[in-house]
Design a protein around this nucleic acid. Structure first.
Lengths: 338, 338
DNA sequence: AAAGCCTTCGATAACGTTCTCGCTAATATA
DNA sequence: TATATTAGCGAGAACGTTATCGAAGGCTTT
């Protein structure tokens, strides 16, 4: 029943050298003869040696675990990001440990408190959209645990941040709408206080200004990210004194909510009201008419975030960096005027 | 920079007792006076002591990690299951380690080989749908690592298995179709060799037989789980000598694929052809007409799987069990004859 | 008063690895 | 030839915890 694993002791005994030499041979080439090194490597392979993380962790004070804190994994974007993270973590021999906040700032704080920091080498975080102080993150960084933020980044913290080009993506989205002949463009946005929400807003504003189109205050609504908020925001837009003729939604879920509301009101999507989303969730192709959107490089965001974090963990003095990945406009039926 | 954690040594020094006593006090009440025990517990609380998993793991030969092997997490069912698993794992102080196979039997095998077994206390598995031997799982179980299978279980392995009631769910789905007046019912199934695929097939057959409805061979198609397979299967069904008037799809994705194909062929969904799926993916309510389906208790499957696995890990001689959770029919527009 | 039994605790050895020393032998420098 | 330097390696401590063994002290029983 009880298994026994091959240890460096076994290798040392077989080769009649000391464990120290085996240890060195398996890691650096420092202070060890190339020949003995080869000998050890071959023997290790032959005996199917696998390092014991508990032992290395105990002396190195590390765990080979990286934590991911995010609002949810049951949507396309986040589950894809996690897939990307998993890909590189797996390659580099790290485990990922998932913490799901359900988009609650309080739960986020609880997790951070419970978190036995000794059990985590680094943290990948996408913050909750609920307003809240972010000083608990600062605390953790001060404790020496590196954090990389992705997508939903905390604006005022000095740490690496990976995002898609929200400004540019929004700009192109709105420009596309304008090119299709829409003029009165509304924006149903996410909660304020989130960096990417603001960037998309700025991209929207810039495009409108560039084409000298007016933006009414009533055309801009901040609310949550869910489909239902999209629906509600849209119904509200329909009450405007000057009714918009197109909607730029902060994400696909809200765009879909908007479409559902419009269908219910028998407003023709495309002709009477153009809709564009953000993300490129598979549901864009399921809904009818199909939804024009801005594709986000979710997989790549995941991969890069993880790579950055591992750099922070393994290289001393890897400075915090921000990385912005490009987006891509995908035109479908919901913005076809016809 | 370098943090220092509170250890049982520190507690021992403060209390002027030995580490052995502290260790005992923190775990069992065995061989330790209630008073000293209380003293230790209070001190530990006060000093904010957190056990070092590397140290316990080293002596106990465990890791507090449980592995999850599954085809993908970018769909509603699996991401929800993972959420459920995470919930109970988190509660019980276990980390979860994700391995994604992309539904490839080969990658599954690779992962199992790479898997440093010393680094995993147990495994939660949903097998790939590609045909392949499952003896590598047997090997791992023989090595003393418990496995719990969920959803896509390997039929011939002696281990705990958590599933939804696929037979009953399918039975009710088909009975619903029959109740709506459909008589020529086709089944676009998953790949054969998977237990739940077979169970749904059996439920389908039983309902048809019960109501004395004939089942043509050409009405049954085995293929993959993706939307695109659903589309292709449906186009094939439309070529049948006797065209079916309803389709029971093995999951929602295939059902949606079927709907897309039907829409493309201008066949009215509901009136000319009823459609029912399985899972209750959120997209059921997005597509038009909305999709009737059988809801799976994904979250509960995740929770229970994890609970079972932790039992296997922590209790000696916890026998392998099978658990079947109930499903629920959800009627929407795609089966409304009107 | 001796013998036996609990109860409670401490000393110490593991667990597998890395790190710090210091030693030897070989080579380079003076 | 004498002295530094260096490459290569081993001994042993350390990391935080649990397990084993036995000791001390108190109690009961004879």
């Amino acid at each position: 029943m009880k298994r026994h694993f091959v240890t460096i002791k076994d290798i040392a005994r077989e080769l009649k050298i000391s464990v120290a030499t085996v240890s060195r041979a398996l890691r650096d080439t420092y202070d060890v003869n190339q020949e003995t090194r080869q000998l050890v490597l071959r023997k290790a392979e032959e005996m199917n040696y696998k390092p014991n993380f508990n032992a290395t962790g105990l002396v190195k004070n590390s765990s080979h675990n990286i934590g991911i804190i995010l609002p949810t994994i049951t949507n396309y974007y986040f589950s894809t990001v996690v897939t990307g993270i998993q890909e590189v973590a797996y390659q580099r021999g790290y485990n990922i440990v998932l913490y799901i906040t359900n988009d609650s700032a309080e739960r986020e704080k609880d997790i951070l408190n419970d978190l036995s920091l000794g059990n985590i080498d680094g943290l990948l975080v996408s913050v909750s959209s609920q307003p809240g102080q972010n000083d608990h993150f600062e605390q953790i960084i001060a404790d020496g645990i590196p954090i990389v933020f992705f997508d939903r980044v905390a604006p005022d913290i000095k740490a690496s941040k990976i995002m898609q080009d929200d400004y540019q993506g929004a700009y192109e989205a709105v420009e596309h709408l304008i090119g299709q002949g829409y003029k009165k463009i509304a924006h149903i946005a996410g909660p304020s206080g989130l960096l990417f929400t603001e960037r998309r807003m700025e991209g929207f504003m810039a495009a409108m200004k560039e084409h000298r189109l007016p933006v009414k205050d009533e055309w801009i609504i901040h609310s949550g990210f869910s489909m239902d908020f999209g629906r509600r925001d849209t119904l509200q837009l329909l009450q405007c004194k000057t009714r918009p003729d197109a909607i730029f939604a902060v994400n696909d879920r809200k765009a879909v909510g908007a479409m559902l509301a419009l269908k219910q009101q028998h407003i023709n999507i495309g002709r009477q009201m153009g809709i564009i989303g953000f993300t490129n969730d598979p549901m864009c192709e399921i809904i009818s008419p199909t939804l024009t959107t801005v594709e986000e490089p979710a997989l790549e965001v995941g991969r890069k975030s993880c790579e950055f974090l591992l750099n922070h963990i393994n290289k001393k003095n890897f400075p915090p960096q921000e990385l912005t990945l490009p987006t891509k406009l995908i035109v479908r039926e919901s913005t076809r005027r016809k």
